[in-house]
Amino acid sequence: MQPAPSDTPFRHRHLLGIERLSAEEITLLLDLAESYVSLNRRADKKQDLLHGRTQLNLFFESSTRTRTSFELAGKRLGADVLNISVRTSAIKKGETLIDTAMTLNAMHPDVLVVRHPDSGAVKLLSEKVNCSVVNAGDGSHEHPTQALLDGLTIRRRRGRIAGLTVAICGDVLHSRVARSNIHLLNAMGARVRLVALPTLLPTAVNRLGVEVHTDMREGLKDCDIVMMLRLQTERMHGSFVPSEREYYHFFGLDYEKLALAKEDALIMHPGPMNRGIEIDSSVADDITRSVILDQVELGVAVRQACLDVLSRGLPDLRHNQ
């Protein structure tokens, strides 16, 4: 495997978010992920970079796609991977978090991949353990590997990120995917538009360096990429949207609205999709426009790249013997 260029080291012990990464660090991760893409298409996908390392996937929130992706990434790099699902009662969440962190830390894992329903929980956990921590999504805060795989998808399809106009559409308020993508796309020089109902936009979001549109037709106009977000119905604590029907009418991506974007605009979605709520089925399945399955494929490569760079900062195995 090609080593990360030594003049641009990845100086973080954890990957907790995109916000504090530089364009150089993001590029380093994308370049490295690129090399894993072709490797993943071979019959023999196995590497031994993480041989002897232990990777724990600690999920406080259910997920199939992200957990499987991290599991494959770790296994293809030769790590021993364990999946742990922790059910959390609403009250004891935090207690379980610290207790679990301490317990797992005592087993000497090398990498912890953590998803948690509370913003900031993964960072809190990272302060209590000795290993590297990868944020696999914390509350409404960040989901860095999703943004990296989205960035890689765009770069492979368009050859660049800089200068493109990307419309992020839907439930921005509750979306960690949106936040991570805003940071990544801005760092890489894209123009970011947010397209959402006012009730689904966080306060002062324009301060994050984005254009804001509350009319989807206007927001999609001449954009290069349409990035749809899942309407996170499970996060709805109040009447953000009166009905799914009304939502689809104004914010569901169908061919009519898509026609306002550039002719070759790509459609992305982090999954899982709510067909008929935020996206029309035929649009989602349109192989000439939708890159949703590319995203899934590249997700594994991106996570391999993340595990790769973080493992370079781990203590050498020989010293542990």
Partner: peptide
């Protein structure tokens, strides 16, 4: 507090 920092941190704000 409701505002840019809450938005960045993904925390619900109090206006």
């Amino acid at each position: 507090n409701d505002g840019e920092i809450a938005t960045r941190l993904g925390l619900p704000g109090i206006p």
